[in-house]
Write a protein that binds this DNA or RNA. Sequence first.
DNA 1: GAGCACTGC
Length: 724
Amino acid sequence: MPSTSKVIRLAGKEKRTTYGDFRAKHAGKKPQVPWVNVSDEEDRLRKTHLKVMVNGQSPHARHTRKNKKARHSVPSIEEPASPVPSSSGGAAALQEQRKHLPIAKGREALIQEILDNDITVLLGETGSGKTTQVPQYILESGLAGKGMIAVTQPRKVAATSLAKRVAAEKNTTVGKLVGYSVRFDECSSTETRIKYMTDGMIVRELLSDPLLSQYSVVIVDEAHERTLRTDLLIANLKNILKERNGSGEANGKGKGKANKLNPLKIVIMSATLDAEKFSRFFYNAKILYVQGRQHPVKIYYSVEGQTDYVDSAMRTFFQIHVDQPPGDVLIFLPGQEDIESLEKAIELFAKQLPKDEMEVLLCPMYAAQAPGQNAKVFTATPTRTRKCILSTNIAETSITIPGVKYVIDTGMCKEKRYLARDTGGGFDTLLTKSITKSSAMQRAGRAGREGMGVCFRLYTEESFEKMALAPEPEIMRCSLTSSILQLKCLNQDLEELDLMDMPDVESITSALKTLWLLDAINSNKELTPLGRQMAFFPLEPVHARAIIASKENGCTREALDIISVLSASSKLFVDITELREQAAEARRMFRHASGDHLTILNAVRAYEEIVAGGGGKHARRDWCRKHFLNERTLLEATEIRNQLRQTCGRLGIDWKVSCGDKEDPVVRCLAYGLAQNSAFLQPDGSYKQTMGQSVVKIHPGSVLAEKKVPAIIYDELVSGTAVA
DNA sequence: GAGCACTGC
């Protein structure tokens, strides 16, 4: 049975604004958007929450805050990912900086609170220094005893760069007192007492050490992001606390318990707005508040709702450009399509500006951009020029751009959602949705990093009030297959776990059905030996199943080559709209009649030959470029493959076993994992799912498109446009 | 003949 990477579920398509539309609409007109000044929105929200906290019996929080208020102009220090100073005289300067962080004044109160309570919720704004300082305070106070302090982060870069930063503050190199642990990169030793790690990493550690006994303090940072892994960690921490401290209370202190286990302290660190929810979850734990260092941002709302946000953004930009003092502009848009569209429009109008106006320098920014393209964003803006950054959510959290004074917020973002089906499996959709309040505040905050800022919201204050407080937690929106399998290994059932938010029954049923079809659990929902093996792999269960099946099919080497590419974070085949024909031609040599997976294998093998040929880094890069292959994907896949080979070794699967050029064994073992993702050809040329009702179509990028093979298996099902 | 927010093991 041939296999394809992607199939499309047929559905309707929404109409989108195109470049042509607004060129016609606005040619020659002076752009104007009506605004009303509301301002101080952030302050109002902040105050509401302060009130709650002060009433919430935390005298220290009040104390801490009062001290903050008394402070003024201090050297700015960025968090979380500020570069490590390299100059030799840096250590003393760093210590000086530390003392001036907003959180420094609250140090004693903070330590006392953590000492008095097993669980503390720390509400800290950006720039407060909480992520770098709190672990050090805990260490210096001796509160951690002999155990380690874990600080979890949702992202790898944050974990590694924070560790480097804190190591520098401790005047040492990373890997000694301060270390980190992320996938593919562990930098710690027996000396390590503070360990920055990704939430995924600590969840993995749970599998081998369910009580996290190495750690005496676990700090969950960025808890408000509510990643799937953070949610699972938090639920487990609650159980671990009962086990280790013998108490179900936030201030149990573990006293009087003849327990051999070292007690655990938990610190939940969150941005504004949702601290109360964490507090409630943890037996009404105390909430401590630390103010950040953020310049005020003046907020304008549009008087009436805007129907076309791309068009409104363009008019707003020129309004700023013509009327406002110098300062760069950052525009938040949902996706690449809108960014390109707005880029063309602004370019066109900028040419019509009078000669004495400032120049406009456009910087589009999105994840799928060609590498190096976004470099100009970080270079200083030339004189008599206004930089205009058109960005997706990437500039909301992941990347900080210097020099931004104005933010234009369209109020929209894209959200990927997994729709589970109780037939098992499900499909992904990518919808343009309204953002949330916390997202709107985050976006506005990007204007106040270096001085007073202004944020123009392309929606009314009324719409803002109607926005959800925070995005729906990830656990509600994605496949639970992998998580349920991991929990089964801990003898836990997701349904019975004390989670902050419980996913839909349908989502759980769907995941259980998938696991059962993969033989990971039996009909009593009990973990099978096969399921336990699958959980060892850092992969989606469907892929883990295929690898295990490769043992009896004698093609483990091939299976690992393919699956490591499938589980890399970006696609192997570069797809640039304008060069599509050329790319297809350049990659023709990899095409395989048995489908996309074998095509991937061909490409990986060809790359291996180039690597073995020893032409060096440049030769490899040129070869990849020539064949429209993403080398980053290949490099990442190589790392993943090494990891998978090790895992195979531990499970007694010999990864060196190869089936040579035979394709049947490869497709057969993939089919073990992807059985649920199979479809049969119908008379009209479309495909019908074997185990679901959806009618699907092979993605036109597939080597199988238009081939009309009788049956297919596929990796991914996306929602797409109807053709018939 | 098509559509790409962001992470993690």
